[in-house]
Design a protein around this nucleic acid. Sequence first.
DNA 1: CTGAAAGCGCTTACAG
DNA 2: CTGAAAGCGCTTACAG
Lengths: 331, 331
Amino acid sequence: MTVTIKDVAERAGVAPSTVSRVLSDSTSISQKTKKRVRRVMEEMNYVPNYNARRLASRQSQTIGLVLPQASDAFYQNPFFPTVLRGITEAASTKEYGLMLSTGDTPERRKKHVEAMVQGKQVAGLIFLYANDNDPILEFIKSINFPAVVMGTPENGQLNAVDNDNFSVAKELTEVLIQGGCRKLAYVGGDSHQYFVQKRLAGFKAALQEADLPFYPEDVYNDLTFLPRDGYQLMEDLLEAKDYDGLIIADHLVARGVKKALEVFHKHQVMTGTFKSFAAEPNPQDHRHPYFNLNSQQLGRRAVQILFDVLEDQANGSTRYLYEIVEAELMK
Amino acid sequence: MTVTIKDVAERAGVAPSTVSRVLSDSTSISQKTKKRVRRVMEEMNYVPNYNARRLASRQSQTIGLVLPQASDAFYQNPFFPTVLRGITEAASTKEYGLMLSTGDTPERRKKHVEAMVQGKQVAGLIFLYANDNDPILEFIKSINFPAVVMGTPENGQLNAVDNDNFSVAKELTEVLIQGGCRKLAYVGGDSHQYFVQKRLAGFKAALQEADLPFYPEDVYNDLTFLPRDGYQLMEDLLEAKDYDGLIIADHLVARGVKKALEVFHKHQVMTGTFKSFAAEPNPQDHRHPYFNLNSQQLGRRAVQILFDVLEDQANGSTRYLYEIVEAELMK
DNA sequence: CTGAAAGCGCTTACAG
DNA sequence: CTGAAAGCGCTTACAG
């Protein structure tokens, strides 16, 4: 039924080991033999059995992608598909496969990652999130398995790619200040997420440099990163407070905020937010600048870093790679 | 280094084959033995090698996801992550793994799918798109490999899940007509995509039933499914034509359209569109009804259908499954 | 209910 | 430059 390396060998008049070497394009096989064997492979429509290959070679040529616990916010945010696009793109250049983690509970997620890792299904992992005290990440660190985290985890000792969240938020805040804003608020979200904290720090720094006061009560952090949160927050706030500028850590929240500003005719309020990709140039809207975080590039770089780590590992070297991806101010 | 079935067997005082049977929870092993072997597995932190398992059992327990040629529209549309969410959810209930197709050119994409299929990496495929004359899909049909398509391909002979695009568009058009619209346009997109055609048919049918005339020039089809397309189209059209209702096949295009309607103060124009999930109840906006297509459910059902197909196949039965997922009108 | 043995389809020292 | 042979870590008839 299935054609194997043995069938090819027979037809080509060589040993199975030779066919195997042709398959991996070994330099120790003559061009002549390679050509002949390859022709036979074509003829017989041979495709190698990857399971056998992986078992024998102990190499999976596959990257495991670790998704966070499922939430509306994660799956509705363009970050995820955009990063994934960069990942598939980069993985395919080296002919690496991609495997998704699954599991609906923390336990099942961990179990599945263990099965991927210890079960020799993947050569390395990319985490599509960065929470502190994540049991899965802790486990991976403890066994020192090749992994790259998207984001900046609190304690180092691992490889990561991220934007410079501090600088990006600071710069954006400066834009609003230059635009005339004097009473600014920071609309965050889950303060356990590192990027929320970092962007807040950038926000503060900009205020300070501009000699504007910072009040903790102007930080709003109990949001689930969905548009409705931004909308509701504005509903509650707009009359009570008279902010003239808002730095919004999450793009979906910003969507809700802007909707509310429209509905309540607060056209003078400026906003600044962060997006995964450059939205099409809408009618010039100088009151709503944002940073394009270039999440696709983030995905590409994560893969590249993983490749580098894998190579380092093969060479016995151990170091941690941490890379910053440039963001672009759009105003 | 790695602990294998043999190590477990030794420590538990049984044969490797017994350990293997415990692993698959075979009924022919006594509870007593199972308990003992399992304890040893725990103790030794045993995780099976999936490559060996798949090679020996000829079962991959993995689903391959076939993505379309990369495009902004695909990766920016919430359809993709939403469907994926449903897929991961359903796959995890049966402990199936998920593998993503990659490749930047049509040739490389096809090669990779071949490697997944013939290389025994996946038990079945889910296509996250439905184009006619897709070489990959043709290939899969030709070898009769288990697969489910999301969408309704022109020629049958395969398994599929889809919304009822005709009815959904018809009903939505009726809503606009009841809302007072008399001069309607259909904003489509790539007319090679089946759902664009189907929704157009529904649009037409509603006009006809309401005794409203249909003019082919009121159909706009040269769009790439991005917000900017919708925006530009409106820019070009709004003055020339005086539509009072728009049925928009794609949600992102609709976003651009609505933006334009706002900017140009055309608040009287109604729109109707289709979304992958229920957006949060914004301020009641009766002029912009939409259908929630429930794409997450689409993903879940695709997986279930694939499981059914796999089972049918094991039983020697051959039939094609085609399922419609309910959509919900939001107005 | 359990074990011994063959086999899944490759890769890779080792020998020549 | 090529081949024979052992081995990767499982599963699964077959026999008892």
